[in-house]
Design a protein around this nucleic acid. Structure first.
Length: 306
DNA sequence: CCTGCCGCCTGCGCGC
DNA sequence: TGCGCGCAGGCGGCAG
């Protein structure tokens, strides 16, 4: 579940392995991986060879490769996307998956392969669930227009805490929805939203419009801190779905206080962490530290499956 | 304009 | 043992 820290780990790895290299060939193994590319797989394959990569940039969970002529290649990892430098260990093939020699040497989740004219290692885009993908963005080296609607993330040097607080308080919604809204502040997903709210002792359903500046500031500060700490240890890995470009896992899953901790004691007060269905996904929180909003028809948002 | 829900995907684990 | 289903969840599109 790549969120900002995980994507930043990937960006750094790609920077090491892509900058100053010229693309020689592109192979697309699954059309869905380039569904955002207007010209389709054939055009994606044709347009990239000859371009050199000058930088790998990121905003929130979006990555893009800046190219030498001012164009860009956009990448989003979705739920299960990975970039792997060829030669790094790949997850083993599921039993019975390989039905031919070709498939036996190609990982089943390989979607796009880039080769380079320096003869160095290939770079692969793998994606089990195909929520991720890549596309070509003409003139997008500084900031592709496809990403322009994404707000700055907390690790952006030009990120404004004051502006983000204002954006949150301007919303007429609940705080967790606002945190997951990439046009308010980017980079935060379900894991770091729950962790930030736990740190700030704020319930996920707290209305944003009635939040004070100090409370909204505390939530965003907590989000920034937890993502910074996660980045320092390589991000969060639950399984082989999230690894860096060398196939290695991060360690932040050992530091999670709320996410995935259902029935385990809150590290602060010992109350069992609870899991609620919220926004058709799981929200983990401490029912003691994070009190639900006790407004008018107070009910702790028990919609959907549980 | 704004908010919130749906559909897209695959693999794993659990219960019957 | 095998099958069906819940669950993981980011994001674009669109309905209201």
């Amino acid at each position: 579940m790549p969120e900002l820290p995980e994507v930043e780990v990937v960006r750094r790895g790609l920077t090491t392995h892509l900058v100053d290299r010229r693309i020689a060939e592109v192979e697309v193994y699954h059309d869905r991986a380039v569904r955002r590319h207007a010209g389709g797989a054939a055009d994606f394959r044709a347009v990239l060879p000859g371009h050199s990569i000058t930088a790998v940039r990121r905003r929130g969970k979006y990555l893009w490769w800046a190219l030498d002529d001012g164009d860009a290649v956009i990448a989003h990892l979705g739920m299960s996307g990975q970039f792997r430098v060829n030669g790094s260990p790949t997850p083993p093939l599921p039993p019975g998956e390989a039905t031919s020699v070709t498939e036996a040497i190609r990982h089943p989740h390989l979607r796009i392969r880039f080769t380079f004219d320096d003869g160095g290692p290939d770079v692969d885009f793998l994606d089990q669930r195909t929520f991720g993908g890549m596309s070509f963005a003409p003139g997008g080296a500084d900031l592709p227009q496809e990403i322009a609607h994404i707000a700055r993330d907390p690790l952006d040097p030009d990120f404004s805490l004051v502006a983000a607080v204002a954006a949150i308080r301007h919303k007429h919604t609940e705080i967790k929805r606002a945190l997951l809204d990439q046009t308010v502040v980017s980079g935060i997903g379900n894991i770091y939203a729950d962790e930030a709210l736990w740190r700030a002792k704020v319930h996920y359903a707290r209305p944003t419009a009635s939040m004070t500046r100090p409370v909204a500031t505390a939530v965003l500060t907590a989000a920034t801190e937890v993502m910074t700490q996660a980045l320092a240890v390589g991000g969060t890995s639950f399984d082989a779905l999230y690894v860096n470009v060398n196939g290695e896992s991060g360690y932040f899953d050992r530091s999670l206080n709320a996410y995935g901790q259902q029935d385990r004691p809150c590290p602060r007060c010992g109350t069992p962490i609870r899991r609620d269905a919220f926004m058709n996904r799981s929200s983990f929180f401490c029912p003691h530290c994070q009190r639900p909003p006790r407004t008018h028809a107070s009910r702790p948002a028990r919609a959907g499956r549980t």
